[in-house]
């Protein structure tokens, strides 16, 4: 019998694997063609390394972050690694996750990514999906929505965020070397971040 947090992270790994070529192709357009491959390698290692039966959500998230740090290889390693480790701090010692916890997770992950990547919204990064998602999630929860409804809205905003990244020039990461030629392409990081949120939403919906 595996824990919910294990099952959810394992599902995120499945989603990344299914979209490995898609993410790598997006990265080929404006980067170094490794985002999908790197993320898939990272999540394979994560699913092998995290405990199946540890109910301490914070500890499992921390282990996930540490493993991504060592195995992803590209900038997504420290960025997603930081995001999961910050999420782990929010959930330290907890065995259940509430909507308020998830709100705090998103905010802590975003703050961690911003600090690590020295990026703000509007630079064609994963933040362009995550920040609007986090904002609408909080709004929906404050308005009395349940977690799945709030996550639905968050995923819609994240999708819009991906569309927005097509319209702007990259000023961070490898894509910034391309200047205006990065316009017209969607950001691979915003895409993998949105896929992550959608997987969490689908997982919780089935619960």
């Amino acid at each position: 019998m595996s824990t919910k947090v294990y099952d959810c992270i394992s599902r995120i790994g499945d989603t990344i694997e299914e979209n490995k070529d898609f993410l790598t192709d997006l990265d080929r357009e404006i980067g170094d063609a490794d985002h999908g491959v790197n993320m898939a390698r990272g999540f394979h290692a994560v699913v092998e390394k995290i405990p199946k039966d540890d109910g301490n959500i914070g500890a499992v998230l921390k282990k996930t972050g540490m493993t991504l740090l060592s195995t992803v290889g590209g900038a997504s390693g420290p960025l997603y690694g930081t995001a999961y480790m910050e999420a782990g701090k929010v959930m330290a010692g907890k065995t259940e996750m509430t909507a308020e916890d998830f709100s705090a997770i998103l905010k802590a992950a975003i703050a961690g990514i911003q600090k690590r990547g020295k990026a703000v919204r509007g630079e064609k990064t994963m933040l362009d999906a995550l920040i609007p998602a986090s904002e609408i999630f909080d709004e929906k929860i404050a308005g009395g929505s349940d977690i799945v409804t709030a996550l639905n809205a968050a995923c819609e905003e994240a999708e819009k965020g991906i569309e927005y990244t097509k319209t702007i020039r990259a000023t961070k990461g490898r894509a910034s070397y391309l200047g205006d030629r990065s316009i017209g392409h969607q950001d691979p990081g915003a895409t993998s971040a949105t896929l992550t949120l959608e997987t969490i939403r689908d997982f919780l919906k089935e619960e």
Partner: peptide, 13 residues
């Protein structure tokens, strides 16, 4: 590189 020699960087290493 990574532990298996792949191109990349590893904060833990």
């Amino acid at each position: 590189g990574l532990e298996d020699g792949t191109i990349g960087t590893d904060a833990v290493r």
